[in-house]
């Protein structure tokens, strides 16, 4: 196995394209190193992207933020601007692992690892975040929603790397929240999760919403019916029940050691309901 720390995104992309064997990008390594150690993957080439200039920066852009692909969860958690604008995204990222893991783990690594249970992903999808990609064909932007392709898989082509995530601007009276269910209180993997982003009209009614679910399907789900169920409401009981129901209907989970289909489906609805209430309160809505 060769290890190369790339100096630029283009160099990284070139190395990856040219590698005839198995290649892997290394960001925080909190997924990759575990996989290497257990013998799950045996790459011929590992390209470290952390030394690429700018890849660890958080930069304001058009009222939102561009977050470098190698910004760690801990660094993001301490960024006051991002925290104020997208608290739900940040709380998802901050749930990853422990203090030690937080020091290394990245949002993009979480996304590209392709786990349906990745804790950064539903928040990013609810936020309608996009990623910027450098590849053999140049640079392109893509919605986060379109990156996962199924457990352990992404839609990125050979040689493509994500260099940053963009979190857009949002109006006043808007906020978001993320909740996951785990059997323990930390150091665990989500059995179901929900990210909810809301915008409120002047009267406190919800004017726009995005609801994303994790760990209940082969990849993250954006549930349009769930958003429809609460747009126009002030999260009255009926709207919340309709939200939960729409989430349950969208779920397509597996039965496994971590949870039954029934459990994941029920819990996804419960979490979406609870996350919506938190986001609503954060956005200035009162109940």
């Amino acid at each position: 196995m060769r290890y190369i720390a790339a100096k630029t995104a283009d160099e990284a992309a070139g190395l990856l394209v040219d590698e005839p064997g198995l290649a892997r990008i290394l960001a925080g390594g909190t997924d990759l190193l575990v996989q290497l150690k257990s013998g799950l993957v045996e790459p011929d080439l590992v390209v470290d992207i952390k030394n690429i200039p700018g890849i660890r920066d958080v930069t304001p852009e058009n009222g939102g933020f561009r977050i470098g692909a190698a910004v760690s969860a801990a660094e993001l958690g301490e960024h006051k601007g991002v925290l104020a604008l997208w608290p739900g995204v940040v709380e998802g990222v901050e749930l990853i692992g422990s203090t030690q893991v937080q020091g290394r783990a990245t949002m993009v690594g979480n996304l590209c690892n392709g786990s349906p249970a990745g804790d950064a992903v539903p928040g990013l999808v609810a936020a309608n975040a996009t990623v910027r990609i450098t590849g053999p064909g140049g640079s392109r932007d893509c919605p986060v929603l379109d990156i996962p392709a199924g457990p352990g898989k992404t839609t990125l082509a050979k040689g493509e790397i994500i260099t940053s995530v963009f979190l857009p601007a949002r109006p006043e009276n808007a906020s978001d929240a993320y909740l996951r269910f785990i059997p323990r209180t930390e150091m665990d993997i989500g059995v179901a999760s929900a990210g909810v982003s809301l915008e409120l009209a002047a009267d406190g009614a919800i004017s726009a919403a995005r609801v994303a679910l994790g760990a209940v399907a082969p990849k993250v789900l954006l549930v349009a019916d769930a958003a429809t169920a609460i747009v126009g409401s002030k999260l009255e009981d009926g709207a919340l029940a309709a939200l939960a129901k729409a989430c349950e209907a969208a779920c397509n989970p597996i039965d496994d050691k971590r949870g039954t289909i029934e459990f994941r489906t029920r819990t996804a609805g419960v979490l979406a309901r609870r996350a919506a209430l938190i986001a609503y309160q954060r956005a200035g809505g009162s109940k």
């Binding site: 059997p183 323990r184 209180t185 930390e186 150091m187 665990d188 993997i189 050691k257 971590r258």
Partner: peptide, 16 residues
């Protein structure tokens, strides 16, 4: 055995 590791064999952590 489906859960031969501390991720899915859940001993309590301090915060539990």
């Amino acid at each position: 055995l489906q859960n031969a590791g501390f991720l899915d064999y859940r001993v309590p952590v301090a915060s539990d």
